[in-house]
């Protein structure tokens, strides 16, 4: 059984637009299904505004989903009463992009790490102290630094504190929303290595959100590519990077500048920008920028289908590598 399973999840925001305050819908997440196994990392990639953060926040139910179901450990948690949800929050934690904004500047590191334990009534003072000291040991911060404030730490250290805070309650799943995007590369690698080590040690599952395809490749077991609120492709990491099927994934992968000047690649340059999620294009939402689009793409909304073992893509021009087409059914 998967640790997390999401079925046809939708997050539609209503916004007021224009002079007359006309109401419009932003389909930030629009029918997303996937699962994450215990101890596994699912990477979520896609361009700005494609719905990555909304997806993460909806799963944690920081915002209520418009529709769809979320299962955690086999249990449907979409409509849990408040109290049960609070209990469940211990198991699902989030790490944010901005280590500067996400830590209370007026709390010491000790207080920051102890607060979740107090809120959830875990242990007595002494036990909590032990938990906190065990944690900072894992993230490479010294005991004598515990009574310092966030601004006295570097960006990488702050992000490690953010990770430690997410770990205080022994979660099973961590949703990490661009956790290294604000960091310098040399510091980014410290944090990535830490996340990998902790995963092994604690058998954590990660949903790792990032716009950086190289970082996602490094950390993920499987990867989902999003475009305008939908998953357009999902596969094992090696498979996805070696054999991308969806035209969007192909373009995305060739667009990444590679730090190797001896390699010159043919690049697929997409025309135009990401369309607005308020009035997404009809049919396949990618057809306005797709280099291989045909008139059918404008009409037909492609479904995510399994094109090869464990490799799903939503494009009518990608053919099944075996004979039979299977409809998505992840359970």
């Amino acid at each position: 059984m998967a640790l997390l399973e999401v079925k046809d999840l939708k997050q539609h925001f209503t916004i007021k637009k224009g002079f007359l305050g006309e109401k419009k819908k932003v389909k930030a997440v629009d029918g997303v299904s996937f699962h994450i196994e215990q101890g596994e990392t699912l990477g979520i990639v896609g361009e700005s505004g494609c719905g990555k953060s909304s997806l993460g926040r909806t799963i944690l139910q920081l915002i209520k989903p418009t529709s769809g179901d979320i299962f955690f450990g086999g249990k449907n948690i979409t409509h849990l009463p408040r109290k049960e949800m609070k209990e469940l929050r211990k198991d699902m934690q989030i790490v944010f992009q901005d280590p500067y904004a996400s830590l209370n500047p007026r709390s010491t590191v000790r207080a920051i790490l102890e607060t979740p334990l107090i809120v959830h009534g875990v242990g007595n003072r002494q036990e909590r102290r032990k938990v906190v000291e065990g944690l900072i040991d894992k993230i490479g911060i010294r005991k004598d630094q515990l009574d310092r404030f966030p601004h006295e730490f570097s960006g990488g250290q702050r992000q490690r504190i953010g990770i430690a805070r997410a770990l205080t309650l022994n979660p099973k799943l961590i949703i990490a929303d661009e956790p290294v995007s604000a960091l310098d590369v040399s510091v980014q690698s410290q944090v990535l290595n830490l996340m990998v080590d902790l995963q092994k040690e604690l058998n954590l599952s990660y949903m790792f959100i990032s716009h950086d395809l190289s970082v996602v490749q490094h950390i993920s077991d499987r990867v989902a590519v999003m475009y305008l609120g939908k998953i357009v492709e999902i596969a094992d990491v090696e498979e996805l990077y070696r054999n991308p099927l969806h035209p969007y994934t192909k373009a995305l992968l060739t667009a990444v500048p590679i730090p190797d000047p001896t390699k010159k690649r043919d690049r697929i340059i997409l025309q135009g920008d990401l369309p607005s999620p308020i009035n997404p294009p009809t049919g396949c939402a990618f057809h306005t920028r797709c280099p291989v689009a045909t008139p059918e793409c404008k009409e037909e909304s492609p479904e995510l289908r399994e094109k090869a073992m464990g490799h799903w893509a939503s494009c009518i021009h990608v053919h099944h590598e075996q004979s039979e087409k299977t409809k998505i059914n992840i359970s």
Binding site: S189, N193, S214, I258
Partner: peptide
């Protein structure tokens, strides 16, 4: 050594300690 490279999957990245 600390940058993850597209197409190359390594178990561990190099990193520079300290700041």
């Amino acid at each position: 050594e600390s940058i993850p490279k597209l197409g190359v999957k390594k178990a561990k990245l190099g990193s520079i300690p300290g700041m």
